[in-house]
């Protein structure tokens, strides 16, 4: 990862979460969102539940979920760390994830941080919607 903001398209190849993009912000946090490819593949998204601000998520731990045509995708963050900000817009309007997944429909900002290196078992995966 470099200090320059990443193009979401570049981040799409992230092997941890290929459905998500991330972009390094000036403050050192990463902004995370759904890729356009993943949004198209999902179809019309009718439900979205985001991560909990202030909570640390391990690698592979479900942090958010979206639903389209009775299919639920549980999303792990593309890197372990603490969620420092969540975007309330897609929770209130899940269709935004289809309309502007790499813009106004970003999901959260994450401060990357060390974890114990183990994949967390699924717990109550996501928190209260905004």
């Amino acid at each position: 990862m470099t200090g320059a903001p990443q193009d979401p398209a570049d981040a799409e190849a992230c092997p941890v979460a290929p459905t998500l993009w991330l972009r390094l912000e000036a403050d050192g946090t990463y902004r995370v969102g759904l890729t356009t490819t993943a949004a198209r593949r999902a179809g019309a998204i009718v439900h979205y539940r985001g991560p909990v601000a202030g909570r640390a998520y391990a690698a592979r731990e479900p942090a958010a979920s979206l639903e389209s045509e009775k299919w639920v995708e549980h999303l792990a963050l593309p890197l372990p760390g603490t969620v420092v900000e969540v975007n309330p817009l897609p929770t209130a309007d899940p269709g935004l994830l289809n309309r502007d997944p790499e813009g106004a429909g970003w999901l959260c900002r994450v401060l990357a941080g060390p974890t114990d290196g183990r994949a967390a078992p699924p717990s109550v995966p996501t928190g209260a919607p905004e």
């Binding site: 439900h47 539940r49 929770t91 209130a92 109550v124 996501t126 928190g127 209260a128 919607p129 905004e130």
Partner: peptide
């Protein structure tokens, strides 16, 4: 069995 899982808060 965890009520927190069963009773996840509703979408707005």
């Amino acid at each position: 069995s965890d009520p927190a899982w069963r009773e996840l808060p509703p979408a707005p």
